[in-house]
């Protein structure tokens, strides 16, 4: 279970989050919705350990992880970034296999085999040797999800601010998120698209912009 208690955050003298508390059970999908500027992405970055906290606590499975930064959370939390942030110099397969080699210590063959399995499950059999610039938006999204799944995370965070802009991609992503529910992975999806949130979420949390 992930519990966030009384989180506050100020950026450049502007209060972005004020006493935000929420909880999500293991395996649940939580959608964080709210207008632009409400601090959805900031909240997601705080959970990921990419943004320092000034007040509040984060508890993951009973363990206080408040002061841990991204590199100290042992791969328990993964992020699918809004722009995917795939590594452009590596193929889809290499993007997924890289952490298996460098972090899990798998040899090249095993890392490639495991990476290929994940990519196959996401329907990317034909694209494993393509570089990110050769992939469509939806394919990039799937590679980003495959890369996030590689380290067997307990929680995946999705920054989906653009989903409302492209109906086809949005529906594609919703299907993917729903398919991941079978893996018992907790998913937190940041979006401003209520329709999208209703499609994927077990629980919805609304963030209001601070005036």
């Amino acid at each position: 279970m992930l519990e966030i208690k009384n989180i506050s955050k100020t950026i450049k003298n502007k209060k972005i989050l004020s006493n935000v508390s929420l909880a999500v059970e293991n395996g649940q999908t939580l959608a964080i919705v709210g207008p632009s500027g409400a601090g959805k992405t900031t909240l997601l970055r705080i959970i990921a350990g990419l943004e320092p906290l000034e007040q509040g606590t984060i508890v993951l499975d009973g363990q206080d992880v408040t002061s841990k930064v991204a590199t100290q959370i042992d791969g328990k939390v993964a992020v699918v970034f809004q722009d995917f942030n795939l590594f452009p110099q590596y193929t889809a397969l290499e993007n997924v296999a890289l952490s298996l080699k460098l972090v899990k210590g798998q040899d090249k063959n095993m890392a490639n085999q495991n990476a290929q399995k994940i990519l196959d499950q996401l329907g990317l059999e034909g694209q494993i040797n393509n570089y990110p610039f050769e992939l469509s938006g939806g394919q990039k999204q799937r590679v980003a999800i495959a890369r996030a799944l590689a380290l067997n995370p307990e929680i995946i965070l999705f920054d989906e601010r653009t989903s409302a802009l492209d109906p086809a991609l949005s529906s594609n992503v919703a299907d993917l998120i729903n398919s991941l529910k079978n893996k018992q992975i907790t998913q937190i999806v940041v979006t401003h698209d209520m329709e999208f949130a209703q499609k994927v979420a077990d629980v919805t949390f609304t963030l209001e912009a601070i005036k």
Partner: peptide, 18 residues
């Protein structure tokens, strides 16, 4: 280099040298 590249690598638990 886009800071997002570094953040993506950090989320994958890569060390600074890696």
């Amino acid at each position: 280099i886009d800071q997002g590249q570094v953040e993506a690598a950090e989320m994958l638990q890569m060390k600074k040298a890696q």
